[in-house]
Design a protein around this nucleic acid. Structure first.
Lengths: 138, 138
DNA sequence: GTACACCTTAGTCTTTACTCCAAGGTCAAA
DNA sequence: TTTGACCTTGGAGTAAAGACTAAGGTGTAC
């Protein structure tokens, strides 16, 4: 059994984070000491690893809550369900990437067009492009 | 001269947004009517276009505030300064893209490894990868 | 017995860019 | 003169994921 600080240290999170996860239904300590201290067991530790891994994969805490509810009762859920869920998240990530790549391209055009010299910005192509109504084409 | 609602409609933003920009020093109407109505001129309209274009390029409102302060006094700033600023933003966008591409790759691995069948999730490879301490390699 | 590290709860704060609401003033048309 | 669309200010709420603070209880080592 671990106290909150021990578990936090073990997996490099803060105690605030653990309390936050508890409050939001992601991870509850298996018991409490007589004096009210949170006590975590190895199952809790594995759940926390799950949460951290899922976060690294870009799942939000809301997503993870859903994944955990599947995980604790696997037999009531299908592989298909889990895969769809993951594919949906992948799609979201790819949408965000496309958006950023479009922005990247706009910025690259600005940078490439600009001389970058030490003279005054009076005729700076970046500023004039931004001033121009139709300067940016996405 | 335009009232707030007219300008908002012209460039497809809300009046709330215009008041927000004013409050945060991005765009102040050139004058007020006797009864306190905001009045915008064509210079204000061009500034708003600038803001909208810059937003499309991924600049935050803070960035834009800085860009505007350069724009209103171009002769005191160099082209180099504007270009550096833009390159810095480009770098930020590219960092974010890299981060998301790493996440995309993790998610793709999960999706590819999963059979996605209609059987129970008891042996779902996605769940077991997430459960595994070292399941995700970034 | 006291110092110090640890724990508790409840609550506020952060960032970004708005969005919504309430209570009230203004303006033009019918 | 009244209706309805417009405008004003101030303030609160939103998402996400915690971080931070205050006021106080607990555990242990010297």
């Amino acid at each position: 059994m671990y106290q909150i600080g021990e578990l936090a240290k073990k997996l490099s999170v803060t105690t605030d984070t653990l309390r936050y996860y508890e409050k939001h239904g992601l991870l509850s300590p298996c018991s409490r000491s007589d004096t009210g201290y949170r006590l975590y067991n190895d199952g809790n530790l594995r759940s926390l690893q799950f949460i951290i891994s899922a976060k690294k994969c870009g799942f939000t805490l809301n997503d993870i809550q859903e994944l955990l509810s599947i995980q604790v009762d696997k037999s009531s859920h299908s592989c298909h369900e889990v895969k769809s869920f993951t594919e949906h998240k992948l799609q979201q990530v790819e949408d965000k990437i496309s958006e950023l790549v479009a922005i990247q391209s706009s910025l690259k055009k600005l940078v490439e067009a600009c001389c970058g010299g030490n003279e005054s910005a009076a005729h700076c192509s970046i500023l004039s492009t931004l001033e121009d109504d139709n300067g940016i084409t996405h």
